[in-house]
Write a protein that binds this DNA or RNA. Structure first.
Lengths: 200, 200
DNA sequence: GGTTACATGTAACTAGTTACATGATTAG
DNA sequence: CTAATCATGTAACTAGTTACATGTAACC
């Protein structure tokens, strides 16, 4: 699942591992300071041809673009701070199509859906809507299951837990429905079935 | 974490693996049909002395232990249904105290807290309250983090995701506060600070 | 006589955490 | 000079899933 997160972030621009980790931390709560997962993942992604890497010497860090440089160190050389040579990763074409696949997978996994949502802007609108509907179907089936066999326990803590689950499900469904409604509203120019062919 | 779930269920009564799995499925949504995790876990729990097991022949299913496997009953009439010899597990004294430990651990893990709540009735009231407060503190710190550095993204999907997170956090905190209030209401005989010494 | 439910297990894999090793640069 | 931050990586561990192997017995 890290694959999805990493490819999604790299799709926006080249990054090195350390920076990726920081973005992961802020963008998608959960994938925190786990270099022990990130670096092996990057190595694997490269072996499979989904990303390519380039060693960049510390001196070359300098801001050509958006990054906010340290203003304090004007007196020092143009060198931006960087302890050692970094490996900057770049998503390949194969990586991009793999990302599109990952974005459309299952949706029965809470954590994965989180990531899919975080990067669903890279999907074509119809696929994005399909993803939302898939997730919705999953939540509805969970709700149906919960209703079919309700809590048999008389323990107040267990009951409270299950009540919270129900409320959370309802809340999530309402939220998803808003997402879906917005999605439909933003592209009303598709009254008929899609006539494009998708190869992925 | 399966340890917690298994010991919690066994504390209520002896069970065999297959039955444990069914209870896991219904009682605590999530731990479904995963025998591949359950059986190794049971073996481990037994090796460490937290549970003991006893082989029970299919014929003796009904009750009244005194397992006598040597005697093979040819009669099929009153036999309860059971495909093969089952291993019925029983929690030991060591297992019970380990369970109490597990019930008081961290609380920064969503899934674990779920299990802790499902079996917190086995905790003494003050410990149970402490568990709730611990969880509450965790949620509050999450909320503080989210407020300190808000979403920097302009992507509508990412923003929607983070808004849902916030709402969920608030909802969870309100729910926890109700739990805590109920807990205090049910034992008002402790108005001052605790003067007991805690050893665990 | 085939499907389903009961029952225990192993092997391989997915997914991630914690702790450690290493070393450069920079701010106080 | 020392702590923090930057930067990459490995090893060992935690936690669980999926698929398979094996067999009994009840249900229709």
């Amino acid at each position: 699942m890290l694959d999805l997160a990493v490819l999604g972030l790299l799709k926006e621009g080249d990054l090195h591992g350390y920076e990726l980790n920081k973005r992961l931390k802020s963008l998608v709560g959960g994938y925190s300071t786990s270099f022990g997962a990130l670096y092996p993942a990057l190595a694997r992604l490269e072996r499979r041809g989904w990303v390519s890497s380039m060693a960049v010497a510390p001196e070359l860090v300098v801001d050509d673009e958006t990054a906010e440089p340290a203003r304090k160190n004007r007196r020092r050389s143009t060198k931006s701070k960087s302890g050692r040579t970094r490996k900057v990763y770049h998503i390949t074409e194969a990586g991009e199509s793999y990302l599109l696949e990952l974005l459309q997978e299952d949706a029965n996994n809470e954590r994965r859906f989180r990531l899919q949502l975080a990067f669903c802007r890279f999907l074509p609108p119809d696929r994005r809507l399909a993803l939302f509907e898939l997730r919705r179907a999953h939540l509805v089936s969970l709700q149906a299951m919960a209703r079919r066999d309700p809590v048999q326990s008389t323990d107040p803590y267990v009951r409270s837990l299950f009540e919270r689950d129900q409320e959370r499900l309802e809340h999530d469904l309402a939220w998803l429905d808003r997402l879906i409604a917005d999605e439909r509203a933003n592209r009303p120019q598709e009254p008929k079935t899609d006539d494009r062919h998708n190869s992925i």
